[in-house]
């Protein structure tokens, strides 16, 4: 049965199929499963940080409230909008790729890149403002405006969480650039657009994590 389908697949060999898969569908399903597993590890990794953040917040609520007053809600909110928009353009890019619409795919990917870059620019201004005020993690904390000393720990978490997230944004931008170049070369079609789909999943995760980070860090009550 399967050796039949194997031989059949063998006649019209699609160039993207790797040798150890029986057919393209199996390859696609496998890649997708692998990606979901990877996303699970990402969520657990950030989960560890969230748990630590939450526990310490319950020990030092005042420091957390004092710390979050130094964060710029407007900038955070704008960044949230940027990432939501970028997720939308990403969905459109995946859809366009699945319809073999090359020009549209490239355009939407470019849009995603622009939003992501906008996010990083705003993050840069936020960070440099914190650096300037001495709102730094742990023993480097040198803010003179007073408040509970554990603000130093709050900023430890702030930089760890947003830093790790920012690293994921940078990696995401590199991946998007890579699939955009491949899309320009016309490598994707309705028959094969797995990389676009997988990068899309990854990008939604990056967006999702920010959706949690924003209220946790910026909207402490």
């Amino acid at each position: 049965m399967s050796s039949e389908s194997h031989v059949a697949g063998h006649g019209a060999e699609p160039s993207f199929r790797q040798h150890h898969f029986i057919n393209a569908e199996q390859q696609f399903d496998t890649s997708k499963l692998g990606m979901w597993l990877f996303l699970a590890t990402e969520i657990l990794m950030f989960g560890g940080l969230f748990v630590g953040y939450g526990l310490m917040q319950s020990v030092y609520p005042e420091a957390w409230v004092a710390g979050h007053h130094h964060l710029d809600r407007i900038m955070g909110a704008v960044n949230t909008v940027f990432l939501l928009c970028s997720s939308f353009t990403m969905v459109m890019a995946v859809h366009a790729a699945s319809q073999s619409e090359k020009a549209k795919t490239v355009r939407y990917l470019l849009g995603t890149l622009v939003f992501a870059a906008g996010f990083l620019v705003i993050k840069y201004f936020e960070y440099s403002h914190k650096f300037h005020d001495g709102l730094l993690p742990g023993t480097h904390f040198s803010y003179h405006g007073g408040g509970p000393p554990q603000q130093a720990m709050f900023f430890g978490f702030y930089f760890a969480m947003t830093g790790l997230h920012g690293f994921h944004v940078v990696v995401g931008m590199a991946l998007i650039t890579w699939i955009m170049l491949r899309a320009m070369r016309g490598e994707f079609s309705s028959a094969y657009y797995t990389p676009v789909d997988l990068v899309g999943l990854y990008w939604h995760l990056v967006d999702l994590i920010w959706i949690y980070l924003f209220p946790l860090l910026y909207l402490v009550s």
Binding site: G52, M56, L136, P137, G138, T139, H140, Q150, A152, M153, G156, F157, A160
Partner: peptide, 9 residues
Amino acid sequence: MERTFGVGV
């Protein structure tokens, strides 16, 4: 991070 920045968690 604890060793390099002294975050204190």
